[in-house]
Simulated assay, not measured.
Amino acid sequence: MLHAVIMAGGTGTRFWPASRAASPKQLLPLVGKSTMIRQTYERLEGLVPPEQTLIVTNQQLVEPIAEQIPELPVSQLVGEPCKRDTAPCIGLAALLVSRKDPDATMLVMPADHVIRSRNHFQSAVKQAVEMVGKSQAEIVTFGIKPTYPAEIFGYIHRGAAIDTRGDSAPSYVVKHFREKPNASTAAEYVSSGDYFWNSGIFIWKAKTILDALAAQQPEMLEHLKKIVDAWGTDKQDEVLEKEFTAIEGISIDYAVMEHAKNVAVIVAPYDWDDLGSWLSLARLLGTDRDENTIVGKHLGMNTKGTIIRSTDDHLVVTLGLKDCLVVHTPDATLVANKNDEESIRNIVKLLEQRGMTEYL
């Protein structure tokens, strides 16, 4: 059976001041009226039932996510006691899923992606599940055709084409996964036509990923097994705290994917964005004749190339701004050069250093 795992533990620091520890970006309605986690969950409707959908997040977010997705059984929400990156998250999910269904196939995806056309997304997932079931690949991911030489995404280097039925999306053998490149390397990738953006969405058998972790991260897997052995007992929380904290954090890319063989990539037949920063709003929501992207109430004079996010009950007035980022919230306002948005992470660190935790 197909099981879905939604990874929802990120902090979204690039979206400060809207994204905070208690309400990170996946819990916010950044694109559309519903929150990112809600959109991700609804994308599975008709494909994976609630009892086969697992959301892994941090302990602080379990309750607010349960409120946003009341139809999801509480047993399907897993709260990590600390941040340990994606490999432990996925490994724990794989153990929990395989305990119920030893032959489970897993769809693993982040909670903060924008994917348009649910039907096309589900069609691609079904194609990937079929490929895994027929052993055409042990791991299948989705590649996004690059529209510009992005430095903010990882890349997938494609190899030979894989034969699929006529109505399927094109698929290829994966040669290599590449980390986020510099500008010149990204330009080479795009001009070659042999690279896709890495969407970070995967389909595999639970056994496949557990075997990979046993080979590459055996110590991590032993900690995770102890957690699952205590799952559902009165020692669950105690063992989870002890064993998960003892794990050394590592991403699934470094832990598994760079060593993986027999990996395929399907060219995604849907529109995708990872909503990585405020600049994403311009791509997703478009711009006006002055190349501004406006969310909320705004009055501008001589304002160009600027992203402004406020609310309908608070007016933001701008005069003489160019290529700026203005984000208003009830207790904090950010004004920045939009091309320096990577430094927003440093603002969060500075607030923490100065003890201004009420703004985190």
Rank of each mutant, 00 (worst) to 15 (best):
E238V: 15
S199Q: 11
K226L: 12
E222A: 07
Y195P: 08
L213I: 13
F196L: 08
F244R: 03
K242C: 03
K207D: 07
A246V: 12
V239E: 00
T245Q: 08
A230G: 09
L210C: 08
K242L: 07
G193E: 05
I247C: 02
K205D: 00
L240I: 08
N198P: 11
N198C: 13
E238F: 12
I203T: 14
E238D: 07
K207R: 14
Q236L: 05
W204K: 05
K235W: 11
A214C: 11
N198V: 12
Q216M: 08
H223L: 02
W231Q: 02
E222W: 02
V239Y: 01
A230P: 13
V239G: 00
W197I: 15
L224Q: 00
A214Y: 10
W231N: 04
D237H: 08
P218Q: 02
Y195A: 05
I203A: 00
F244Y: 14
K207P: 06
D237T: 13
F202H: 02
K226Q: 10
Q217R: 07
E241T: 14
D234Y: 05
V239L: 02
L210N: 04
I203P: 04
D194F: 14
E222V: 11
T233H: 02
A214G: 12
D234K: 11
Q217N: 03
V239D: 02
W204M: 14
A246F: 09
E243L: 11
M220I: 11
G200K: 15
D194N: 15
L240R: 03
K226G: 05
I227W: 03
F202C: 00
D229E: 15
I201C: 07
D237V: 13
W197S: 04
A215M: 09
A212S: 12
G193P: 10
I203L: 15
E219K: 12
Q236Y: 09
Q236K: 10
T208I: 10
V239F: 01
E222D: 09
I247D: 01
E241I: 12
L240W: 00
L224V: 08
L240S: 00
Y195C: 09
A214W: 10
K205Y: 07
E238M: 12
E241L: 13
K225F: 08
N198S: 11
F202P: 02
D194V: 13
E241S: 09
H223A: 05
F202Q: 03
D234C: 05
K242S: 07
K225G: 14
P218R: 01
K205S: 06
S199D: 08
Q217W: 01
I203H: 05
L210V: 15
P218T: 06
D194P: 09
Q236H: 10
A246R: 07
K242A: 05
D234N: 09
A214D: 15
A230N: 10
S199Y: 13
W197T: 11
Q217V: 05
K226A: 09
A214P: 13
G193K: 07
M220G: 01
S199L: 13
W204C: 13
I201L: 08
D211R: 03
D229M: 14
A212N: 05
K225M: 12
A215W: 09
F196T: 10
L221I: 12
I201A: 02
A215G: 04
Q236R: 10
W197K: 06
T208H: 03
N198M: 10
W231K: 03
T208F: 05
Y195F: 15
T245Y: 08
K226W: 05
Q217I: 07
L221S: 01
D234H: 06
Q217C: 03
T233M: 01
D194L: 15
Q217P: 04
